[in-house]
Design a protein around this nucleic acid. Sequence first.
RNA 1: GUGAUUGUAGCUCAGUUGGUUAGAGCGCCAGGUUGUGGCCCUGGAGGCCGGGGGUUCGAGUCCCCUCAUUCACCCCA
Length: 430
Amino acid sequence: MSQYQAVKGTRDIFPEEAAQWKYVEGIVHSLASLYGFSEIRTPVFEYTELFQRGIGATTDIVGKEMFTFQPDPKGRSLTLRPEMTAGVMRAAIQKNLLSLAPVHKLYYISELFRKERPQAGRQRQFSQFGAELIGVSSPAAVAEVMTLMMQVFESLGLHGLKLRVNTLGDTADRLRYREALQGYFAPYHSVLDEASKERLEKNPLRILDSKNPAVQEIVAGAPKLYDYLHEVAVRDFEKVLFYLEERGIAYEIDHRLVRGLDYYCYTAFEVTSSELGAQDAIGGGGRYDGLARELGSSSEVPASGFAVGMERLLMTMEKQGLFAALNPHGPVVYVVVQSQELADNGLQVAYRLRKAGIMTDIDLAARSMKAQMREANRIRASYALFIGTTEVETGLYSLKNLVTSEQTTLSLEGVMEILREPAAKEFYKL
RNA sequence: GUGAUUGUAGCUCAGUUGGUUAGAGCGCCAGGUUGUGGCCCUGGAGGCCGGGGGUUCGAGUCCCCUCAUUCACCCCA
């Protein structure tokens, strides 16, 4: 038991797992650009007000999950970003991106921080990849970000994911619905749990996805948001569904789907994985036309986007055995010295091989020859190159193929020629 | 923030109603093979039994506190 442990809710990613991350990130980068999105990187912390305004002061994220600190007694309060959208929108407004072009398509893979109690699929530092389509607001735009997200899942080989969609209408729709909801729940006030009562006042829509069975029973008879939508919102939603169907993307309409961040309007969606346990949301998003205004933009900046939890994505992939084919490859050749007197000769040879572009490794711990061979085996080197007194004297080296156990003697130039051959490199990708 | 769970070797875990020098498998190191890996055999290193206090002749084992872990609530990706 070491004295220092990783901070609660954080963890280390070691090489084997890092390879999985690199693989997934690679797919994200290539599909995002396939869809015309460019990468954006924003600061890890922002002024606290940004999140209070952007996400909503009554949300749990802002109310009790932020890592907030004061840089100095006079400084403004700062917060480690708990999500990306507010920061990306802030950057877009600050740079006045929309004056350069009417539409901007941005994506990111970033670390986020939320002060929650850790559990399966939930850490205090976690990462998301996501995309934001800024400048247009249309069913086609929402459908585009949804399609990108679903194609990432598909390309990674994920199966059994469930996409649920809903529409939240516009602000006026929600205001009318909100009143109707409060009216409906008023008689049940004494039956509701504390959390639900609080929601009813601050953010009545959230009561819809309460997990409390007693509350759900009452919710079943509640008025439907869908019935309070104006016609434009209904049309909008139907068009989004049309695009999904046209692209063969399976979905489920869930009128009780309410997202936890205040800035969503019209289409909202969420993807869940049955492999994940309690924290089963792997991704989600929607349209957020009102966010820019909330952040002080002088003009309307309609937008939509999504975010996917990287850890949850990786977890699901692991459960579905999607990393089985991912074979981290070792060096092509491992240089083995007969005795430590020849260590420097070995290092020189290794250097020359590396300069020649051949993946090479060598023991640095003055270990026995047997240990060196074991190491070569452990890291899956395909060849071992022996350096002994004979080799140093004659300049001819013994190269052993560790798979076939064949061994040949040749000059260093000859060795390089063999190791540079595609066949030698290909071996690793098996 | 609330509830439950688990802390014993680098890792995964045994450890009986409290009883003397705390074990296994894997991994690591060395030897068997004085210039050759994987398999096998032999040996070795490695433990404040999470930390503190208490009960007892005696605590890894019982009690209290504390720290950490994990899962769930909550919330969300």
